[in-house]
Measured scan of single mutants.
Amino acid sequence: MEVRTIKVFTTVDNINLHTQVVDMSMTYGQQFGPTYLDGADVTKIKPHNSHEGKTFYVLPNDDTLRVEAFEYYHTTDPSFLGRYMSALNHTKKWKYPQVNGLTSIKWADNNCYLATALLTLQQIELKFNPPALQDAYYRARAGEAANFCALILAYCNKTVGELGDVRETMSYLFQHANLDSCKRVLNVVCKTCGQQQTTLKGVEAVMYMGTLSYEQFKKGVQIPCTCGKQATKYLVQQESPFVMMSAPPAQYELKHGTFTCASEYTGNYQCGHYKHITSKETLYCIDGALLTKSSEYKGPITDVFYKENSYTTTIK
Rank of each mutant, 00 (worst) to 15 (best):
S171K: 14
K280L: 14
G228C: 00
L121N: 03
A136E: 14
H74S: 07
E52H: 14
Q197M: 11
K92W: 04
V8E: 06
A140P: 02
S104G: 07
V160A: 07
L102D: 05
S50Y: 11
K218C: 07
G257V: 02
N111P: 05
C285H: 10
V67K: 10
K280H: 10
C271A: 10
M245S: 00
C225R: 01
L133S: 03
N147Q: 14
S279F: 01
P131C: 04
Q175E: 09
H90L: 13
F9Y: 12
H51P: 04
L290E: 15
V99N: 07
N110W: 03
G143L: 03
F217P: 01
Y265H: 00
P60T: 07
R139E: 13
V203E: 06
D109C: 05
K127C: 09
M26S: 12
S310Y: 14
T198D: 08
N268G: 15
L133G: 04
D109K: 05
P34F: 10
E204T: 07
R141E: 07
C225P: 01
S295W: 10
S246I: 00
I152G: 02
Y269Q: 15
C149P: 03
N157R: 10
L81A: 06
P47Y: 04
K255T: 11
L186Y: 15
F305Y: 06
F217C: 06
Q196Y: 14
Y214F: 11
Y297T: 01
L283S: 00
L37M: 13
I45T: 13
V185A: 02
L151R: 04
P130F: 03
T19N: 11
L254K: 02
I105E: 02
T260I: 15
L88I: 06
G161S: 06
R139W: 10
F128C: 04
V206A: 00
R139P: 05
D303K: 00
S213Q: 03
C271F: 13
H176L: 14
C193D: 01
C227F: 00
L173K: 02
S86G: 11
E308A: 07
D165T: 01
H176P: 02
T120C: 14
A150C: 02
Y28H: 05
T35K: 05
A87K: 06
S86D: 14
Q122C: 05
S263L: 06
I277C: 00
K280V: 09
Y57V: 11
K46T: 12
I315N: 15
I315G: 12
A146H: 07
K95N: 09
Y214N: 02
F32I: 12
G33Q: 04
P47M: 05
W94L: 05
C285T: 13
K298Q: 08
T76F: 13
V67D: 13
Q98S: 08
N157L: 03
Y265E: 00
A289G: 11
P47T: 04
L118I: 09
K92I: 11
F242Q: 01
T199F: 06
T43G: 13
Y155K: 05
S295L: 13
A154G: 04
N110T: 02
E281L: 01
L37Q: 13
E239C: 11
L59H: 15
Y137L: 12
G82W: 13
L151T: 02
N61P: 06
A150P: 02
I315L: 15
A146L: 03
C285I: 14
K46C: 12
W94P: 03
Y311V: 08
A247C: 09
R66Y: 09
Q98H: 09
T302G: 02
Y311W: 10
L126A: 04
E144L: 07
Y306E: 02
A117I: 06
A150T: 03
G101K: 05
C190H: 01
D287F: 01
P241R: 06
T211F: 06
M245R: 00
V3D: 14
T19V: 11
R66C: 13
A247Q: 06
Q270P: 05
C285S: 12
T292E: 14
D63I: 07
Y72A: 12
K201W: 15
H74I: 06
T116E: 04
T226L: 10
D38E: 13
T192M: 11
Q31N: 13
A146F: 05
T260C: 13
N178P: 04
Y274S: 01
K219R: 13
T159G: 10
G299V: 04
E52W: 11
N129I: 08
A40F: 13
A140F: 09
K233H: 10
D38C: 10
Y36F: 11
G53R: 13
G288T: 04
T211P: 02
T75M: 09
E162T: 04
A231H: 02
K7E: 11
C271W: 13
M26L: 10
M24A: 15
K183V: 10
Y214M: 13
E281W: 00
A250G: 13
A132D: 03
E52K: 12
Q196W: 13
G82Q: 15
S171Q: 10
T75K: 09
K316I: 14
P224W: 11
V236W: 07
H51L: 05
L119C: 08
T43K: 10
T35Y: 05
D180V: 07
S279T: 08
P249K: 01
T282C: 09
C285M: 15
D77R: 05
T192E: 14
L283E: 01
Y284S: 10
E52T: 11
Q197V: 11
Y113P: 05
K92N: 09
Y96W: 04
I15Q: 11
A87Q: 07
E68G: 07
Q216Y: 05
P34V: 13
S25M: 11
L126P: 08
L88R: 04
K93D: 13
L291E: 15
I286P: 00
P78I: 08
G53A: 14
P78Q: 09
R83T: 06
K158S: 04
T35N: 04
T278N: 06
L151W: 02
Y214P: 04
Q238T: 02
V22T: 10
E204S: 10
N187G: 09
F305N: 00
P241G: 09
N309S: 12
T192H: 11
I152D: 04
Y172V: 09
E144Y: 11
Q197E: 12
E68K: 08
A154T: 11
E239F: 08
N178W: 04
Y155N: 01
Q222V: 10
T55F: 06
A136P: 02
G202L: 01
S279N: 09
T198K: 14
Y284V: 14
D38M: 09
P131R: 07
H273A: 00
S171D: 05
E168S: 13
Q122S: 03
M170Q: 01
M207H: 07
K54Q: 14
T232Q: 08
Y138S: 13
C193A: 03
V22I: 10
G143T: 02
F148D: 02
K44P: 13
T282F: 09
A142S: 13
Y297V: 05
T258S: 13
Y172N: 15
Y284A: 13
E162I: 02
L235T: 03
Y297P: 00
I223V: 15
F242Y: 00
G272Q: 03
Q222K: 12
T199R: 08
C156I: 08
K92C: 08
K92Y: 06
Q30C: 15
A136N: 09
D63G: 08
S79P: 10
E264H: 05
N178T: 06
A136C: 06
Q230W: 14
T169W: 00
A262P: 00
T232E: 07
L121V: 14
Y297R: 01
Q122T: 04
K106H: 12
Y208G: 09
P224K: 14
